[in-house]
């Protein structure tokens, strides 16, 4: 019987490669379009709401999260993701998708232990790493500020 190392070489040789050009093109195009939609939302809010830039920015993010959640709910986002790859993962809509999709998936196990408990199965690491790193940044800035 062949040993693991030479088998790994055969596998590597035979494994089909990702269609680089197609996936990169799709990620670039769809990612760019999602950002343009975000910019449009921002511009509309900035025009018609009497609010400072921070609030408009936050509202834009919330609106995009709503779009991502809704498209996930009606079953469109996974189809976009099939073609777009990172183009629909990296924008904030992808973050919404990663929260809504497990919540929908585990709805059958009940609202408390299914939907609510599993909601952060994919997005949990994002929130944990984000909050922890922001605390780290805050503490570093505080210490530097006190020392200075």
């Amino acid at each position: 019987m062949i040993d693991a190392k030479s088998y790994a070489e055969i596998v590597k040789e035979a494994t089909p490669k990702t269609q680089e050009a197609r996936t990169l093109f799709a990620a670039f195009g769809i990612g760019g379009v999602i950002c343009m939609i975000g910019q449009a939302v921002f511009d509309v809010y900035a025009q018609f709401l009497n609010a400072d830039e921070k609030t408009v920015s936050a509202l834009t993010g919330m609106t995009m999260i709503f779009f991502g959640a809704l498209l996930t709910g009606v079953g469109v986002y996974d189809k976009i993701g099939y073609y777009a790859g990172a183009g629909s993962i990296v924008p904030i809509t992808g973050f919404a998708n990663s929260i809504v999709s497990p919540a929908m998936e585990f709805h059958n196990e009940g609202i408390v232990f299914g939907l609510m408990a599993r909601m952060f199965g994919v997005a949990g690491p994002i929130i944990v790493s984000g909050v922890c790193s922001s605390v780290a940044v805050g503490i570093i800035y505080y210490i530097v500020g006190v020392a200075a």
Partner: peptide, 17 residues
């Protein structure tokens, strides 16, 4: 999919294999 991979509605791309 639920047993081995991701939620159905998560927008992921299949790998070539």
């Amino acid at each position: 999919e639920r047993q081995y991979r991701y939620p159905l509605e998560l927008g992921t791309q299949p790998t070539p294999t």
